[in-house]
Amino acid sequence: MFISFEGIDGSGKSTQARLLADALRAEGRDVVLTREPGGSPGAEEIRRLVLEGDPDRWSAETEILLFTAARRDHMERTILPALAAGKIVITDRFADSTRMYQGLSRGDLRGIVDQLHALMIAREPDLTFIIDMDPAKGLARAKARNGHEERFEDFGEGLQARMRDGFLALAREFPGRCQLIDGDRAQEAVAADVAAIARKSLAWTARA
């Protein structure tokens, strides 16, 4: 099964992806926890290009190409081999982030994102958790990390607000795949809801 976590910066999706992986491993399941951009050697090199530096380092169009290249390598090297081996793959971000960050929030480029995705990736997660968070709170959390990968956070709260609206719309667009989770709670409460939904989906997949 292929599971992705999405949401604005600081929403807690990385923590929830890790907690779900830990919970499923504790049940004896074979889980690969990965991330985007990154998750394979080549994709990690591209990660440094797109997440560091000035906000205006790349145009949205160039970013779409870079993210798609990273995702293709991630699929070839990590995701598809793990799924073929019968493992559960959990990724912190996937194509929905590109649909939001480059496709909607910085121009009307969603069509280009979807065309490249269909041509070069042609795979959606089986289950996507969208961790919802107030943009101001999420950005404050993200900036408090004081990391080096802050290029998108430096676009400010306006981008985060547009992103949140986009993710909420995405949940409505793909109701069979996307599960909207309230992230403005204790991480244990969020993790319990996520784990319950994941276990139900895994049980359904096993029966199918």
Rank of each mutant, 00 (worst) to 15 (best):
A195Y: 14
G183T: 03
L180N: 09
E188H: 12
A171L: 07
D182G: 12
A198V: 01
K200V: 09
F167M: 02
Q179R: 14
A195S: 12
R172D: 13
K200Q: 06
R177M: 03
A189T: 15
F174D: 10
P175R: 00
D193G: 06
F174I: 10
A189I: 04
I181Y: 00
D182K: 01
G183C: 06
A192G: 06
D165G: 12
K200E: 10
D193F: 12
L168I: 01
F174E: 13
R185S: 03
Q187P: 15
C178F: 06
V190W: 00
R177E: 07
F174V: 13
D193A: 13
A198T: 06
A195C: 11
A191Y: 05
F174G: 00
I197W: 02
L180E: 07
R172H: 15
A169K: 00
K200P: 00
L180G: 10
C178E: 11
A169I: 03
A196C: 05
D165P: 09
G166R: 05
I197A: 14
P175V: 05
P175Y: 10
A186D: 14
G166I: 01
G176L: 14
Q179F: 07
K200N: 14
A198I: 06
A191L: 04
L180T: 02
R185I: 03
E173L: 13
L168Y: 08
R185W: 13
D182Q: 02
G176K: 04
Q187F: 12
A192M: 09
D193Y: 03
A192N: 07
A186G: 15
V190Y: 02
V194P: 07
R177T: 02
D165A: 14
C178K: 03
D193T: 12
F167S: 01
G183Y: 08
D193S: 15
D165W: 00
D182F: 04
A171W: 14
G176Q: 07
L180H: 10
A198G: 03
F167G: 08
A198W: 05
P175W: 11
A195I: 14
A191V: 05
L170D: 05
D165T: 15
G183A: 08
A189N: 08
F167K: 04
C178Y: 06
K200D: 13
R185F: 07
D193H: 09
Q179P: 12
D165N: 08
D182S: 00
E188W: 05
R185Q: 10
I181G: 00
D193P: 04
A198K: 02
